[in-house]
Nucleic acid binder design. Structure first.
Lengths: 158, 158
DNA sequence: GTTGAAAGATGAGCTTT
DNA sequence: AAAGCTCATCTTTCAAC
């Protein structure tokens, strides 16, 4: 098995539609792409089996569930080596409030996205959980004032 | 109508499950939360109508669709005022490769998440599209080397 | 691509608290 | 009254042709 997956224009359309509406029925999806339901479903299943479509998720309104603080946090480690990164990761994965963690180039080593009820709760997460990780050197927080775009549709490279 | 929504423990469970699996059937969801299908569905519908659940999305494997470059970009504007922000936003919304745009505190004014096929395509997006926006002052890119956590489940504040 | 059986969704009316 | 349950009907899925 090689890593090359043949994806035609129809598959692209399917992926685009399912990204913007993960709950569309197969019947409506098939209409939109101009195929009958059976082959449409077959394509979707194949995309899921290939791992090209990974999963489906509901998106919630954070304000409405009481999440008032969202931040980006730039994290530098005390020396970047495999052991330190492993240690950091193991701990980060345990912290529910850290919803994203990316290893990046640039002045910081990692970029986190962190959510919390309010500034107090946020401070508590950062002090009690993130700062407590031994290998963490410095932290720089940027509070999100508002989110102006949050597209769930990844554009296809042509 | 006031803004207060009563959400009990069952609703929370529903929201948590639908965030991690947006395509679970109502039958299975009802099992998990310990209700019969009808009231379960009723609750889900109410959460959707309240806007607490905003939407459903398929998540794709970016590598497999040929998206090789993901970055965070810190953007500073030439003076931060309503007009400049409006101008910036209108243009940013048109750029498909910019999948997120957040207004933040800190040294930069905005944080973008940008995706592209490769470094060349990325450079092209940044030079031809983002840099071209009149009000943009400075840009600072951080390339994502790897994503170590990307949770779609927002933890409920208690 | 079409058809049909099985699974799931969903509304009406009944029961419980 | 508010929430949940059961049943009957309609829709969707999905495998066989």
């Amino acid at each position: 098995m090689n890593g090359i997956l043949k994806i035609d224009q129809t598959d692209r359309k399917i992926i685009e539609i399912l990204q913007s509406n993960g709950k569309i029925t197969n019947a409506k999806l098939s209409e939109k792409i101009g195929l009958s339901p059976a082959p449409t479903l077959e394509r979707v299943k194949k995309l899921e089996q290939n791992g090209l479509i990974e999963s489906y998720h509901a998106q919630v309104d954070m304000d409405k569930i009481g999440v008032g603080v969202k931040t980006f946090v730039k994290v530098s480690l005390k020396g970047i080596n495999k052991t330190n990164i492993e240690t950091f990761l193991d701990k980060i994965k345990e912290i529910d409030e850290v919803i994203e963690c990316h290893h990046t180039t640039g002045s910081g080593d990692f970029m986190l996205k962190v959510v919390a009820k309010d500034i107090n709760a946020y401070q508590k997460v950062m002090l009690d959980k993130v700062s407590e990780i031994e290998v963490v050197d410095s932290l720089q927080s940027m509070v999100i004032l508002s989110t102006l775009k949050n597209s769930k549709v990844i554009p296809f490279p042509h």
